[in-house]
Amino acid sequence: MQTQMTAPDLATIVEDSVVTMLGLSLGDLVDRDETADSCELGASVQFTGDWEGAIAVGCDAAFGAELAAAMFAMELGEVTDGEISDALGELANMIAGNVKPLLPAAASLSLPTVFRGSEVKLGFPGAQVWLAIAYQRNGSDVFIRIYQRAG
C-alpha cells in the first residue's frame, strides 16, 4: 500500500471525474493558502478503519448547478436543489473511492453527506487537513480537502 499520496495524485483523480468524465471546466489549480475558508455547498465522505478521516468537496452554488446539469444532462436553469445535492455527493463519493487505495492504511467509505448554507465552514472535530487542492473558476473556488483524524 502506498504511504504518501500527493497533491498531483489528488488533482488527477478530481480532474478525471470532473473534466474527463463530465466535460466540465475546473479552472486553474491554485495554492490552497489563497483559497476561501468557507463555501455555499459542501459534500463529505468519511474514512473509517485503520486510517480515519474524511474527504470534503466545497464549491459555490454556480458550480453545483453546473455539475448537476452535466450529470443529469439538463439545462442549467432546470436543475433542482435535490439534484445539485445528489450530484455533489456523488462527486465526493467518486473522489473518495479513488483516494481510498492511496491512503497509508485500510479504510472503509461512508455514504456521502451534503451540506449547504451561505458560509459553510469545512472541518471535522479532531481532524486536520492532510492534503488539499483548490481550483479557481469564475472568481470562486472549488476545493477538495482530505482530513486525517488524530489517532
Binding site: 468524465m21 450529470m71 444532462a73 439534484e83 445528489d86
Partner: peptide
Amino acid sequence: DDSKAMRAIVRR
C-alpha cells in the same frame, strides 16, 4: 445506484 445522478450517467 442510490444516486439519481449516477443512474442518469450510467443510463447515458
